[in-house]
C-alpha cells in the first residue's frame, strides 16, 4: 500500500511540474463551461440544476481522458525510465495502481475545479444538491473507467499519439455500447442476451443513471469492475512488453 502511495505521489507531483496539467485543466474548464452555457443554454432553461453541465461530460472525457492517460506508460517506455522504475523494489502491480490513482486524482482535481458552477446554481435557485453530488461522483467514476482503459492502451505502445487515438476509440466503444448503432451492429450476429450484456457495459447508460441522482450499487460495481479489469490487463501488458 505504501509503495502505491509513494508512486502515486511522485506521479501526481510530476503533473504539476509540467505545463500539461495546467493546459489540461484550463481546457477542461473552458470546454465544460462553454458547452454548458452555449449549447446547453443553462441559464435560459431557468432550471436550477446542473444536468446540462453533466450531460456533456462523457463526450469531453472521450478525448480529454485519453490525453491524460496516453503518457502514463508510453512515455515511460519511450524514455527508458521504465527500466529504472521496474528495477526499484516495487511490484509492477503497485506501479500500475499508483500511476492510475495519480491520474484519477488529477482528473478529480480538474472536475472539482468546476465548483463555481455549483455555487452559481445554488445562488440562482434551490437545486437538489444530493443529485449534484451523485452526478459528480458518477462523472468521476466514468473518468476513472476511461482512464484505466487509456492506461491499458498506453502500455501497448511507445508512441503517445497512437496511444491517444487507440484509447479514444476504445473509450468510444465502451461509451456507446448502449446506443442504437452499436447495438444493431451486435444484434445482427449475436444472441439477444449478448446484446443486452453489451449494453450493460455502456458507460453512457451507467453514467446517465448515476447522474439522475441515483447511485445504484450496480453502477458502482460496473465502474469499479471496468477499472479493476483494465488495470489487471494493464499489469499483464507491462510485464509482457517490458523487454521489447
Amino acid at each position: 500500500m505504501l509503495n502505491i502511495w509513494i508512486v502515486a505521489r511522485r506521479e501526481l507531483s510530476a503533473y504539476f511540474t509540467s505545463p500539461l496539467a495546467y493546459v489540461f485543466i484550463v481546457i477542461f474548464l473552458a470546454l465544460a463551461g462553454g458547452l454548458t452555457f452555449f449549447f446547453g443554454q443553462w441559464l435560459e432553461r431557468g432550471q436550477a440544476d446542473l444536468q446540462v453541465f453533466f450531460i456533456y461530460h462523457p463526450y469531453l472525457y472521450l478525448f480529454l481522458i485519453p490525453a491524460v492517460g496516453m503518457r502514463l506508460w508510453a512515455e515511460e517506455r519511450k524514455s527508458g525510465t521504465i527500466e529504472f522504475l521496474l528495477t526499484l523494489p516495487v511490484t509492477t502491480g503497485q506501479i500500475v495502481v499508483g500511476k492510475f490513482l495519480a491520474a484519477w486524482v488529477f482528473a478529480g482535481i480538474a472536475l472539482a475545479l468546476t465548483f463555481p458552477m455549483w455555487i452559481t446554481v445554488n445562488m440562482l435557485g434551490q437545486p437538489d444538491n444530493g443529485v449534484i453530488l451523485a452526478a459528480y461522483i458518477g462523472s468521476w467514476l466514468m473518468a476513472g473507467g476511461f482512464l484505466a482503459l487509456s492506461a491499458c492502451v498506453s502500455a501497448m505502445t511507445k508512441n503517445q499519439v497512437i496511444a491517444f487515438v487507440l484509447a479514444s476509440a476504445l473509450c468510444f466503444v465502451f461509451m456507446m455500447s448502449g446506443v442504437e448503432i452499436i447495438q444493431s451492429f451486435f444484434r445482427a450476429w449475436t444472441p439477444q442476451t449478448f446484446v443486452e450484456s453489451v449494453s450493460e457495459l455502456s458507460f453512457l447508460t451507467n453514467f446517465n443513471e448515476v447522474s439522475q441522482g441515483v447511485i445504484d450499487v450496480r453502477d458502482l460495481v460496473f465502474f469499479f469492475s471496468v477499472i479493476g479489469i483494465a488495470l489487471f490487463v494493464n499489469t499483464a501488458i507491462v510485464e509482457a512488453k517490458k523487454g521489447v
Binding site: 511540474t17 524514455s79 527508458g80 525510465t81 529504472f84 528495477t87
Partner: peptide, 9 residues
C-alpha cells in the same frame, strides 16, 4: 541502466 534514463521533469 544503459543511457541513464531518469525523469527529466
Amino acid at each position: 541502466p544503459e543511457g541513464a534514463p531518469l525523469y527529466g521533469d
